[in-house]
Design a protein around this nucleic acid. Structure first.
Lengths: 201, 201
DNA sequence: TGATTTATAAAACGATCGTTCGTTCGTGTC
DNA sequence: GACACGAACGAACGATCGTTTTATAAATCA
């Protein structure tokens, strides 16, 4: 990795952590420059525009999410075990990744949801990919027979995302110490409702 | 209502709609001034500081939420009917209120959740009040016998908020036309799980 | 109507924004 | 030793930010 790549990554690391606190939209070249002890222009040259920097941060976030949440979970056998691993990793990922201020992607989703442009597109693509992964994982738990054949995988994934979002908000804004436990309760209820039973029907 | 109050309210209306698009943090005195065809200083004088304006917008949002979502629902008899009315109004409120760009409060929650200060406090207070209202409403549905006595009302409210949040995101960012239907499915599943049955246990 | 608050405006403040420009520094290559 | 190159810099650009000051117009009240 050349010197350029190295610096670029260092900037990105700092930007990532900063964006976690103040949001991707709140990033500023000046602030980022003094944090990395670089000149504004030197830093700027690595990205060409602020928007490019923001996009890079979003891509970084997606990559880390895949590394920290999805990839480890896919070492579990497909089915409920894998699904549960995703949920566990997901709820924990702001602690594991360098995200002192919460999930960058979710914050960006709320920030750009009605501001058309490349940033919105990037967030959208990432979240669509996540939803597809969730749907597929649920579908596999159906095909293993752990969930009922009539399970609506899209509905299941939809509700999973709801659990994640309210957990984030409860933790971060409401300081609810029960948030994580409630998330797991909700997940278990979801699984139980769709699980195959031997009571028939 | 004197002239001052009148202009102040007009500014607030515009700020409210604008904040729906670009967020409470994205509000700017300059932009707001030209939208209301006022001078920056003339507008500024009504609030004294930008933060005070932002707080006013958040309070406006809370008030409208109470007017549009809660108050009408409380005309329903307490119990499941009232709870369902809250959910229906809630899902619809960005259409009913002047919120072309989505729920101001939820966006502000994501924006300020780790930026200590009066804005975060205001959002927090509003969301805590909402949660309390939800918990109380669920608890009443328990006391009417419509929900089981061992229902965890806090858990119920927690999951309701999750449904709302994922619905907003699915509608606004993912353009999912099924979002509203899925929200109701999730709500029904929630109610069914906690409902009293005559099968016993 | 005249006096007096109140509401709005115009102009300017220093700060910060993203961006551009020209230059310097360091490194490796012929 | 001359050359080319990528990396970083300092200085400045015009624009916008929130805010203050000073002044005038409008509304309110006696």
């Amino acid at each position: 990795m050349g010197k350029g790549e190295q610096t670029r990554q260092a900037i990105l690391d700092e930007a990532f952590a900063l964006a976690s606190n103040i949001g991707v939209g709140g990033l500023s070249i000046g602030v980022l420059a003094e944090r990395t002890r670089m000149s504004k222009s030197g830093l700027f040259a690595h990205f060409g525009s602020k928007e490019e920097l923001q996009l890079a941060v979003l891509r970084e976030a997606q990559q880390r999410f895949a590394d920290v949440v999805l990839r480890p979970a896919f070492r579990q056998p497909r089915g409920l075990a894998r699904l549960r691993a995703i949920v566990i990793n997901w709820l924990d990922w702001t602690r594991v990744a360098n995200l002192p201020g919460g999930c960058v992607i979710n914050a960006a989703a709320a920030e750009f949801d009605d501001q058309p442009g490349p940033l919105r597109d990037e967030v959208r693509i990432g979240l669509l990919a996540l939803r597809r992964t969730l749907v597929d994982t649920v579908a596999k738990a159906v095909s293993t027979g752990e969930l009922r054949p009539d399970t609506d995988a899209e509905q299941f994934a939809f509700e999973l995302e709801g659990i994640y979002q309210v957990t984030q908000q409860s933790r971060r804004l409401l300081d609810d110490p029960e948030a994580d436990r409630r998330a797991l309760v909700a997940f278990d209820r979801l699984v139980r409702d769709y699980a195959s039973t031997n009571k028939g029907d």
